[in-house]
Design a protein around this nucleic acid. Structure first.
Lengths: 120, 120
DNA sequence: CTCTTTTGACTACGTTTGTAGTCGATACTC
DNA sequence: GAGTATCGACTACAAACGTAGTCAAAAGAG
């Protein structure tokens, strides 16, 4: 089940607010993404076809909610990305991120905690 | 300059062995990727159009080499990926990777070294 | 020299993706 | 109740993608 970048925007909205309709999705879309409502409905329809969303009738419209967990999808996507771009090695990826956007002190602290856990 | 997954396979070969021709690329492609030579040439042609590869005549054929550095491309792709999938937060990504594929002891050591550097 | 192979240039073509439009039915506004 | 907004279902359509085919010229095989 591959989710395209445009579709992912929809998924992100629905992971944050499951059980809303198409017009609420339109409202909730971040910043510049002022897609036409038709566009949103097309993307939602494709996600339903793919089995990534479930529908629930609500009067004459549908409410949508993710059929897959965000964490599961993120994990699969992360693995695929690292495999393709970095031959499966995570460290170079983190190095690039550090360089590209400057990890915040919080990020660094979190990573340290994580590494501490992993070593056990 | 967006590079598609199929094109990235080509780039990876050329980053490892810059200055080879289409048939050498075919030979060098990893494992299952036994693409038709036409397919490879199409992909190479598109990469040249996009400015991702430079050409150098060699007799009646061309040798190709990347016009962009692997590191630069990785960095941009990593940033874009983390932005899209994790709202820009690197730590959850690393957590998923750790979970999904079990970071090796080497990976962990490398990340620790990296974090040590970052804290300075 | 003739046949086969290889190369670049150009073309092909189904599928996926982004971005909507049309249509008929229902709901909401006055 | 008549006009307008909204919904789902279906359709449209160009660009990008994956995967290759055709063609003419040049190079290599015998």
């Amino acid at each position: 089940m591959q989710i395209t970048p445009a579709e992912l925007e929809i998924m992100n909205v629905l992971w944050d607010q499951p059980g809303i309709g198409a017009s609420e999705i339109a409202d909730a879309l971040e910043g510049g993404k002022d897609w036409n409502i038709r566009t949103i409905k097309t993307l939602v329809g494709r996600l339903v076809e793919k089995g990534a969303l479930t529908t629930e009738p609500d009067g004459r419209r549908y409410l949508y909610r993710p059929a897959i967990r965000r964490g599961d999808y993120q994990k699969k996507a992360a693995k695929q990305f690292v495999d393709r771009m970095f031959g499966g090695r995570a460290a170079p990826l983190v190095a690039h991120l550090a360089d590209a956007r400057g990890l915040s002190a919080d990020d660094i602290a979190e990573l340290e905690r994580l590494l501490g856990d992993l070593k056990k």
